[in-house]
Design a protein around this nucleic acid. Structure first.
Length: 567
RNA sequence: UGGGGCGUAGCCAAGUGGCCUAAGGCACCGGUUUUUGGUACCGGCAUUCGGAGGUUCGAAUCCUCCCGCCCCAGCCA
């Protein structure tokens, strides 16, 4: 009962599926590159989310399709925020999504020495200088979006002074924030990234990999492109907000003796309705306790989606369906839901589970006896075979499957009505037992022994088939239901604060669910279908005598739609 | 008022001057099948491509102007 990740497959036709793959195909065709190299470059300052999943599907997917390779590189240039725990979690998530970096695991920090040498090269070429301005002063000197900046008073220091100062920065002679190394480009540029961007800053924080070997760290702009070049990356794919950084990426390439010449291309990041996809906000939800952790099943993190029971293959399918473009978009959650149902419908084993139990006594079934009935494991896949489920005189059925006074379109059980118990018998409701308040406590039924297995020899039809569980054999369990974490399509759109849109009712727990016996021994991570209800995944909180399930997603429910329409 | 992008159905997205009176998927609406009110299957769903002009025999695709939305002023990535 596992959902094994499948190997990503190449596009079936030879037309590139998106503009990035088109560029890659052209570069291969023109001979610009013989082999393409991409990279997935997370910063280890949090867990990966489904947006990173999209990026991985692009980077690893394109590499596989074009017979190149994709590196996993940690962009670990800011020790103030990064942790080993995140490095470990990210690796696990990449593997889970089905991607393999082989031997190509890298860290920007592997390049710190080379990066430092190149920084000295820039200084010697008079293309970088040490600045003493404070962060506030630097902001003032930078100008605004519409006004040019002005040169720092230290902009024209001599090469020797710059070199000396930079060496002393490395040696730890200055306090955090006292000085920075800046590229000398153009303080009047319309592109603010070109107004002498910072290349190095002083930060005294233990680095997960280099410990306290360094007290100066390269910035993203300086480290990222050069790391690409060192690794031989050909196509450096990132999201739209880095478009403005490309001129700086190119400037550094042109002014440094890098061993290769990668190019950066940008695509739009994923936005999903009813959730947030930014590490800053997800970190906030975790730290402020709005969720139980990074792997809370309501979180759009890969860890959360995995715990919720989403198969990795469904996520990959989702990524291929949304495509890769440069237009800002918000993908409806319904599309993800569809991918999950589509995958699970084909792969998930069927089981019977009563979530809101109502007792049924089959009055003409012999007391104390039971029998085993054969049930199909997955009608979508004969190879999954069958199993035996116990049946007896006392059963549980779903409370919602009975109505004492049913409306016209309600086909399920009602007084005097005959329905089928799946894989078992036709039963007819003969009596309703209520408590003093009028609440239905128990149903009395009779069964037709001739309908064993669920077919009637005389050909009479019933309009409904119910799932059920033998009370004497049932396993009690807890089942957790999740709704969207936010009530607004775009959280925070109105007030500016996502917490104003948080759904106070995103978790529902049913603690008296009655499951068929096989469900007492599933493994964590298994996602099964509870017939007629949805897909459910075993949660790590399960204990040997009390399983806990997460509802991954419900089945499409047209009956609910009909009910809604009827008011 | 600076720089960089983006605008094709409710959502995502093909389309690269004629085969576009515009693919495909999701959603939605009908119907068929059904021992899951699930699945599967069939049908419907943009005379129109942000708007206005222009070029052309011919424009979603080329040009001009306009409008709207997104990103950038971290010693974050």
């Amino acid at each position: 009962m596992t959902n094994a990740p499948e190997t990503p497959t190449a596009a079936t036709d030879d037309k590139p599926r998106d503009f990035i793959r088109e560029i890659i195909a052209d570069d291969l065709a023109s001979g610009r590159h013989d082999e393409i190299v991409t990279r997935f470059p997370p910063e280890p300052n949090g867990y990966l989310h489904i947006g990173h999943g999209k990026s991985m599907c692009l980077n690893f997917g394109a590499a596989v399709e074009f017979h190149g390779r994709c590196h996993l590189r940690f962009d670990d240039t800011n020790p103030a925020k990064e942790e080993q725990e995140f490095i470990n979690a990210i690796k696990a998530d990449v593997r889970w999504l089905g991607f393999d970096w082989g031997e190509h695991l890298y860290f920007a920090s592997d390049n710190f020495e080379q990066l430092y040498t190149w920084a000295e090269h820039l200084i010697i070429e008079a293309k970088a200088y040490v600045d003493d301005l404070s962060a506030n002063e630097m902001r003032e000197y930078r100008g605004t979006l519409t006004e040019p900046g002005k040169d720092s008073p230290h902009r024209n220091r001599g090469v020797h002074e710059n070199l000396d100062l930079f060496q002393r920065m490395r040696a730890g002679e200055f306090e955090d924030g006292a000085r920075v190394l800046r590229a000398k480009i153009d303080m009047a540029s319309g592109n603010i990234n070109l107004r002498d961007p910072v290349l190095y800053r002083i930060v005294r924080a233990p680095h997960p990999r280099t410990g306290d070997a360094w007290c100066i760290y390269p910035t993203y702009d300086y480290a990222h492109g050069q790391s690409d070049a060192i690794e031989g990356v050909t196509h450096s794919l990132c999201t739209l907000e880095f478009e403005d950084h490309r001129p700086l990426y190119d400037w550094l390439m042109e002014n440094l003796p890098t061993p290769s010449r990668p190019r950066q291309y940008e695509f739009s990041r994923l936005n999903l309705s009813y959730t947030v996809l930014s590490k800053r906000r997800l970190t906030q939800l975790v730290k402020d306790g709005h969720v139980s952790g990074w792997d809370d099943p309501r979180m759009p993190t890969l860890a959360g989606l995995r715990r919720r029971g989403l198969p990795a293959a469904a996520l990959r399918d989702f990524a291929s369906r949304i495509g890769v473009t440069k237009s800002d978009s918000v993908v409806e959650m319904a599309l993800l839901d569809h991918c999950v149902r589509d995958n699970l419908n084909k792969s998930a084993l069927r089981r019977m589970a009563v979530l809101d139990p109502l007792k049924v006594v089959i009055e003409n079934y012999p007391d104390g006896e039971s029998e085993e009935l054969e049930a199909i494991n997955n009608p979508e896949n004969d190879a999954d075979g069958t199993r035996m489920v116990p049946f007896g005189r006392e059963l549980w059925i779903e409370r919602a499957d009975f109505m004492e006074d049913p409306p016209k379109k309600f086909f399920r059980l009602a007084p005097g009505r005959e329905v089928r118990l799946r894989y078992a018998y036709y039963v007819t409701c003969t009596d309703v037992i209520k408590d003093p308040s009028g609440k239905v406590m128990e149903l009395r039924c009779t069964y037709d022994p001739a309908t064993k297995g669920g077919d009637s020899p005389d050909g009479r039809k019933v309009k409904a088939t119910l799932h059920w569980v033998s009370a004497a054999h049932a396993v009690a369990a807890e089942v957790r239901f999740y709704k969207n974490l936010f009530t607004a399509e775009t959280p925070g759109a109105e007030s500016g604060d996502i917490l104003d849109d948080i759904n106070p009712d995103s978790l529902d727990i049913l603690d008296n669910c009655q499951l068929e016996p096989t469900l007492g021994k599933t493994a964590v991570g298994d996602t099964v279908q509870f017939e007629r209800q949805g897909y459910f995944a075993t949660d790590p909180d399960s204990t040997p005598d009390r399983p806990v399930f997460n509802r991954t997603i419900g089945l499409r429910d047209t009956w609910a739609k009909v009910q809604k329409k009827g008011g």
